[in-house]
């Protein structure tokens, strides 16, 4: 009788570890940010009104609920304050980047999955290789490539393809290039793992049943790789929406992204409360695709049974 019980406790302990981890490093910080977003700015240390004073006991808790303040959300959601534009523009930039990543990443992943088995580990290694250099340094390197007198313009001029240097740096195009470059492994690896698992005889069966290879790709390969597409797209889309470094270094002054707005709000305007509200809203915006992804995964698990 004791054995199943103790095994139950052991199992619960094992499951408790990741839950505790999430609680400590995600839920608690998020609640702090949520709390700050509901406070008001003051010139003090810290620069917001304390909301919850547990030393006051029950009265403190009552104060907390009576003082809840949604002014910051009103401020962020005000059309005059550019935040909504920044959200929209971030979603568009992240969406377009994800599409570009899919277009670039799919052929790479497909080629890797079709390569001889013996060289596939090497190819995977090559995809991961850029991670061995700091992300920041790699983004800085793109400045050297894309600037007016950068490597790209020098090469194109030397080849006689262009007369006047192209203006790429400090435009949205540079942001797209930066995001596609930086996030490519996150797109390629899930796609590769989905394509690599695929049974080649399914394509033979499609061809045998009268389906030319190109069509077989769309009828068989692509639908079967959709879980990989979904995983890759979310792995790229979610961080790209909140991307700060790439638009800051490669983008122009008119490149509007929510990560940059948040940074400005936090450091230039010194408003912890408003920037917390920006962060909370960003999370809410991103929860939607995450829930969709969860759904797809659950359905896959169901199918795998």
């Amino acid at each position: 009788m004791a054995l199943p019980g103790s095994r139950g406790i052991g199992r619960r302990l094992v499951i408790a570890v990741p839950f505790f981890w999430l609680l400590l490093l995600f839920v608690v910080p998020f609640l702090i940010v949520l709390k700050i977003s509901l406070s008001q700015d003051v010139i003090a240390q810290p620069p917001y009104t304390p909301l919850l004073d547990l030393s006051q006991g029950w009265a403190g808790l009552k104060d907390f609920f009576s003082q809840l303040n949604f002014d910051n959300y009103g401020y962020v959601l005000d059309w005059n304050n550019e935040f909504l534009n920044a959200y929209g523009s971030s979603l568009i930039i992240a969406g377009v980047s994800t599409l570009l990543l899919l277009l670039v990443g799919y052929p790479i992943a497909y080629g890797m999955a079709r390569a001889p088995r013996s060289i596939q580990p090497t190819l995977v290694m090559m995809v991961i290789l850029p991670f061995w250099t700091s992300f920041l340094i790699r983004v800085y390197a793109w400045i050297g490539i894309l600037s007016q007198d950068g490597l790209l313009n020098q090469a194109l001029t030397a080849l006689g393809i262009i007369d006047t240097p192209l203006e790429i740096l400090n435009t949205d195009l540079a942001v797209y290039i930066g995001i596609v470059y930086s996030y490519l492994p996150f797109m390629v690896l899930p796609l590769y793992s989905a394509l690599e698992k695929m049974d080649g005889t399914l394509l033979e069966a499609a061809e045998d049943l009268g389906c030319p290879p190109m069509k077989a790709f769309w009828l068989v390969t692509f639908p079967l790789s959709l879980p990989g597409v979904a995983a890759g797209a979310l792995l790229c889309f979610i961080p790209a929406v909140g991307e700060f470094v790439i638009p800051d270094l490669l983008g122009g002054s008119d490149t509007l992204m929510i990560g940059k707005s948040l940074w400005t709000e936090f450091t230039v305007n010194r408003s912890w409360t408003a920037s917390s509200a920006v962060a909370v809203l960003l999370l809410i915006v991103l929860v939607v695709p995450i829930v969709i992804y969860q759904n797809i995964q659950a359905r896959q698990l169901e199918a795998g049974k």
Binding site: L202, A205, A206, D208, A303
Partner: peptide
């Protein structure tokens, strides 16, 4: 037409 050993049904 061929019936495959693994059946190769489209999952």
């Amino acid at each position: 037409n061929m019936m495959f050993q693994s059946y190769a049904l489209f999952p």
